[in-house]
Amino acid sequence: MRPPSPSLPEREFLLQALHQSLRLDGRAMLEARTPTLTFGPEMGWVDCQMGKTRVLAHTTATMVKPQPERPLEGTITIHSEISPMASSAGEYDSGRPSDEEITITRMLDKVVRRSDAVDKESLCILAGERVWALRLTIHCLADSGNLLDCACLAAIVSLRHFRRPDVEVIGSDVTVHAPTERAPVPLSIHHTPFCNTFAFFPPSPSSIAAQDSQDPLSSPLQIPILDPSHLEQRLCTGTLSIALNAQREICVLQKLGGVPLGAEEVLLAVEVAVRRAKEMNEWVDGRLREDWEGRKGSVEVR
């Protein structure tokens, strides 16, 4: 059964509210929901919640023989899955992946793997013989809008939280130390990209008319909102996802939907995303430090 589209009253009311700069959950137009991070008993186990959207990410590492063409590099594989239970509307079938699922999988790959967030060379143990293979599993448990940002945040925090066992190499002998014996080592992370999704809505008819009388050539500006809810995501004319780190380096910029956007609209979104990435970076650092302090009894810390 195809997921039912939102009803006409919902569409009309949402647009009417947005034209008065009001959002249904009381947020400001460019305000995101505050995420909640819960760390599990294992390192690399992160439960990320934004409102009712919930994603679970888990990182594990195994020792494998490297690919012959890249003997000095470890590997990272990302497995993402959206549970059919994530939405009561029956949007996500178990067998066939939906368009949104494919978008999320590809975006995660770009944000986490292709932006070189993790130093793959540091995963090498013994050249050509032994490397670490990281496996990042992402379970999307509930979707109430902006699953992508939530999944990206969960993925990157999981990698930052994860610690692999310490390894000692003497000659060609590899000794793996248990976490109680020697402190596990965090992964070497180059940078932390954060994904921010904007949804765009058509401007109100009155503002179109005002724009036309002033300058008929320029198209009226679309209304941007940050961190769209489920309904907003379904009704918007297009989305723009920007993944960047606190150093203002854009990793991915992805625009979906047919709506044309001007340079100033994109730049405005990038400005907001930069500010937010800086905030998020500090916040994530703080949360990770807090969690690590709380673990001092259970693992050996040097």
Partner: peptide, 10 residues
């Protein structure tokens, strides 16, 4: 009012 409907929703 739109605001009242939003208040009811919330």
């Amino acid at each position: 009012e739109v605001k009242q409907t939003i208040a009811m929703t919330r």
